[in-house]
Nucleic acid binder design. Structure first.
Lengths: 230, 230
DNA sequence: ACAAAAGTGTTCCCCCTACACCCATGG
DNA sequence: CCATGGGTGTAGGGGGAACACTTTTGT
């Protein structure tokens, strides 16, 4: 079966910039796959692929992520569309990139079909990347950083229960600098999105109070936007 | 000549959400064309069209704008990509929308070939629109509003020389609310982007000092981002 | 003289910043 | 009792918000 058109057409793909926080390594991680096919076979790349004809762009990323990595996202938004001619050796390929976030509990990867393997990489120690994916990742990191300062980010990156130190650590990892503990706590509590669960985490030494997000209030703040210049 | 592919392909278009301020009518205007062809012939729509195979997305919007309206932009950025199946009756069409700004002096429209005519519409009094263009415009207005509060917007929307009242009016029109004159002036001058030209505008009653933007400083602030919650 | 827009200062309060010590627990 | 991370308060300063009158010009 073949499809014939009067004019040449570009292909349309989607790519996923998926971030997760690794609390053990205190690092921001990004999900990459090793390409199983040409072009760039054996190279590292963002998960993604061609959009089906009757499929929404968002649906396409979710499907591709499922196929290639089986990771479950807790959040997704459109990032940017990259369409420079020549960005793909196969011909004209326009790609819409998405920003995704995952909670630590869902960081497990089952290897899929299209990808040789999928691995979490430290954002600061990335390998060489296929296509213009280095640039896409750069755009994604910028977006995440700016997003964090005017929207409450956290529910999508933290486990359901977490300590204030966890939350602070998430911010420090993303922003790449340290934050004063007292100021951070006062500020974050003032928004009224956090509720103590009553449970404590006993790990080392003094137990830490566990919190969860008030989802209603969280959604409200997300809509309104907040000023969170920590 | 025909082009044959193994799989079906979507079309890719670009659309331009172009804003300009009309100081006479104290209104935010948007550039629309009356479609000269099917589908939606005779309806109002955003300027735009198909991306050529060897053409960057940005280049495509600029070309289409030129062809259809001859308007000269002072600024452009990518807005969002709309790709829902069914958004275009011709088949699968994915469209990347751009946000454009024009200065009042360049608001003149020369009618082009593709469009029956091009007209500036008040954003608050829009006609029925083709495709999902109403939604695209809504996204554009939101972006412009949020952009204004963390980047210095103005150089792209104002004439080369302008009064502080002009600038304030621009902000009021975009944000849709009034701002205290004294606070606005103090805040805007504190950024150090404005320089008095020495000229004054004599229109009614007391003459007003004319200002221009310091382009170097403007570019710097644009890069850094600012906090401008007026 | 009056109408219209330009221009100008101050006070109050809130929030951000900087900063250092005690607490609870495990080993 | 010591090491480790959890948890707390305050003083000072800067900037935002609210607010009203004088100045300059044209008619």
């Amino acid at each position: 079966m073949a499809y014939t058109y009067k004019y040449p057409k570009a292909d349309h793909t989607v790519d996923a910039v998926v971030f997760g926080i690794d609390f053990d390594e205190t690092a921001l991680k990004i999900l990459l796959i090793e390409r199983a096919r040409e072009p760039f076979k054996g190279n590292w790349a963002l998960p993604g692929g061609f959009v089906e004809m009757d499929e929404d762009l968002e649906a396409a990323v979710i499907r591709e992520l499922q196929e290639e990595t089986n990771v479950r996202l807790s959040y997704m938004e459109q990032l940017y569309t990259f369409g420079a001619p020549g960005r793909d050796p196969r011909g004209r390929v326009i790609s819409t990139a998405f920003l995704g976030l995952v909670q630590p509990g869902h960081i497990v990867i089952h290897e899929g079909s299209d990808a040789a393997k999928a691995v979490w990489w430290n954002v600061n120690e990335l390998p060489g990347l296929a296509f213009d994916h280095a640039q896409i990742i750069k755009t994604g990191v910028q977006r995440l950083r700016s997003k964090i300062s005017w929207q409450p980010v956290g529910i999508e990156l933290l486990p359901d229960e977490f300590t204030l130190s966890d939350l602070q650590q998430a911010y420090e990892i993303i922003l790449g600098r340290s934050i004063d503990k007292r100021n951070f706590r006062r500020k974050v509590l003032k928004f009224g999105v956090l509720a103590p669960t009553g449970n404590v985490r006993k790990e080392n030494y003094r137990p830490a109070q566990l919190y969860q997000f008030d989802k209603k209030r969280y959604a409200l703040l997300q809509k309104q936007g907040i000023d969170f210049e920590v």
